Computed example of a mutant assay.
Amino acid sequence: MATRIAAPRGAMRKAPQQARSRATIDAILDAAAHILGERGWEGLTTNGVAEAAGASIGSLYQYFPNKLALIEAVRRRHFDDVLAVLHAAANLETPRVKRITVLVDGMIAVHSRHPAAHRVLLEESPRGEDSRSAHDRFDVECTKAYETLFRANVRGVAERGCVGARVLAGALAGAVHEAARQGQLASPVLRRELIALVDAYLSRLRPLVEKPVSRQAR
């Protein structure tokens, strides 16, 4: 089972129990992310979100007490989507080449979902203590998932797993986030280059101890 990030205290008034309720919440969160990307934090209102989602304001308030709670739920959903991709990419029953494409395609798909909202979440929307705690938990789970993925694709280098996982995570996240800012996530060239990047990094097994350079080579 994929790890999910627990909701911050007080973020939602109640959890949805039925498929219809979950669909309503998904529509509300999609609307919130869309408006956030178009109008920014200041332009986001609960009334606007309810109208865009086709839900009553009463239905929205059944789950979210304010717009900050909405944003926290959008952020947690993104965290959960990223973790789901990482766990799928670490599945040893899937061939190695397929695991790499699952990772790249999954990261592109996750960040293609309301890409403009990601910038606002990072740069504009306020973060309380609960938000920081959720982000810290995500960082821990993300690191664990990348370590699992790294070890699944690179055998015999377990002692390098932690550092290698962080390097891979930073390289991939940086490239995908920059592509999102540039509006290039749909580029087939980007996809091809990301697959090549991940494959080359996971395939390159450098010696753990660098050989000293001889005086003649200096």
Rank of each mutant, 00 (worst) to 15 (best):
E123M: 10
L149E: 01
A50D: 12
F138H: 12
F64T: 10
N91H: 13
A52N: 06
G106W: 12
E93K: 09
S131M: 09
I25V: 15
G156N: 09
L29W: 06
G156K: 02
M107V: 00
E141W: 07
M107Y: 11
I100Q: 13
T148L: 12
V85T: 07
A88P: 04
C142S: 14
I57D: 05
A52I: 10
T94K: 11
A152E: 03
D105C: 04
I100L: 10
S112T: 06
D81S: 15
R119F: 11
A55D: 05
A84M: 12
A55L: 04
L92E: 14
A109K: 13
S125G: 00
V140P: 00
A109Q: 07
G128Y: 02
D139P: 00
A145M: 05
A19R: 14
H78D: 04
A90H: 00
S21L: 10
P95K: 14
T24V: 07
R151D: 00
Y146N: 06
S59M: 09
H111C: 02
A88F: 08
R13A: 03
R119V: 01
T101Q: 09
V157S: 00
F150N: 00
R22K: 15
T46E: 14
D130H: 05
A55E: 13
H78Y: 11
A145G: 04
T94H: 07
E159I: 09
A19Q: 11
L29N: 10
L44G: 00
E123K: 05
A31G: 12
T46W: 03
P16G: 05
E147R: 09
L149G: 00
E93A: 10
G43V: 05
A84G: 13
A89H: 05
A50S: 14
I71T: 01
